[in-house]
């Protein structure tokens, strides 16, 4: 399987890359989704701009009370980051659940998020974290919330010529517990469903719950009804079951040869319950 012919540029700076992207080139990050699509000729960009050669896009750092992750940080760099493990363990846990070792070595957070595969892992965690994405064009910079970024399957608010430059996630205190639970599709490593939970307790009462769900519908979303069902409670096993049952409520669920819509909804509830229990158990 050979891709159609294309031109390749390895720019040294973001400005150079954005200039090329403004004239119609397509960005290439880890290539873990784009290259298979090009080989199958589902994608045939005429010009690829390699973002991995731009050193300034690869970082994980803390600044202004938040965590900033550059577009080309790989899943492996995220899963093995001591800073993230300590300050945003939901992201390290999610990164470690992606694909396989080789994919995590090459794949990047910016590429994965911008590709917006409905079965990708990060979007669940990023919804639960209420992450922000910094998007840059040749003459623009804007910040979009995860809630607004994902529009549909493989569709985001990125405009032509724009790239996702940075992911920003909050730093939670020790009263917050998180967990990502996924039903893996064993051949591809993608999530049939994946549920990310972030829950804060105050004197054992849930003061705040955020639940992100991926794989179930066209794009990852926040399960707000389930969040509300937990908030204000000291949740019993029953309360957790009841909240988990709400994550798929009213969702137009995907159906394919791996899982029917009804089965996916069932899996979402099961994994939501596991993730809620696990997140609460991790609160110190």
């Amino acid at each position: 399987m050979i891709a159609q012919k294309f031109e390749y540029t390895a720019p040294k700076s973001l400005d150079e890359a954005l200039h090329l992207l403004a004239s119609g080139a397509k960005p290439l990050a880890g290539g873990m989704s784009l290259i298979p699509m090009m080989k199958l000729r589902l994608a045939a960009p005429e010009h690829l701009v390699d973002l991995r050669t731009i050193k300034d896009l690869n970082y994980i750092r803390e600044a202004g009370g938040q965590l900033h992750i550059g577009a080309t940080a790989s899943h492996y760099e995220i899963e093995s980051s001591a800073l993230l493990r300590q300050k945003c363990p939901l992201l390290t846990e999610t990164a470690a659940a992606i694909g396989d070792v080789q994919v995590r070595n090459m794949g990047t957070i910016g590429g994965s998020v911008a590709h917006a595969d409905p079965a990708a892992d990060y979007p669940a965690a990023l919804q639960a974290l209420e992450a922000k994405f910094v998007l840059n064009g040749a003459k623009s910079e804007r910040t979009v919330s995860a809630a607004d970024f994902f529009v549909d399957a493989f569709t985001t608010t990125l405009e032509p010529g724009e790239i996702l430059r940075e992911v920003i996630v909050p730093i939670d205190d020790a009263r917050t517990g998180t967990s990502y639970q996924k039903m893996v599709q064993p051949a591809s490593g993608f999530a049939i469903v994946g549920v990310a939970v972030r829950v804060r307790q105050n004197a054992r009462k849930v003061s705040f719950a955020r639940i992100g769900v991926t794989g179930l519908s066209n794009h990852a979303y926040r399960a707000t009804a389930a969040e509300k069902a937990l908030e204000g409670k000291t949740p019993s096993a029953n309360d957790i079951q009841n909240a988990a049952a709400l994550v798929a409520q009213g969702v137009d669920a995907n159906s394919d040869l791996h899982a029917s819509a009804d089965y996916r909804k069932h899996l979402a509830a099961v994994h939501a319950a596991r993730a809620i229990k696990s997140a609460i158990s991790r609160i110190t």
């Binding site: 399987m1 873990m32 290259i35 080989k39 390699d50 080789q102 070595n105 090459m106």
Partner: peptide
């Protein structure tokens, strides 16, 4: 498999295992 699933094409690139069927040679410059 040629589809980045089977791993038979795994090599080490700058110390990291990668699937050489899912990378262009120019990326390894």
């Amino acid at each position: 498999c040629e589809t980045s699933l089977c791993g038979a094409c795994t090599v080490e690139l700058n110390g990291k295992a990668i699937k050489s069927c899912t990378m262009f040679a120019v990326q390894a410059n």
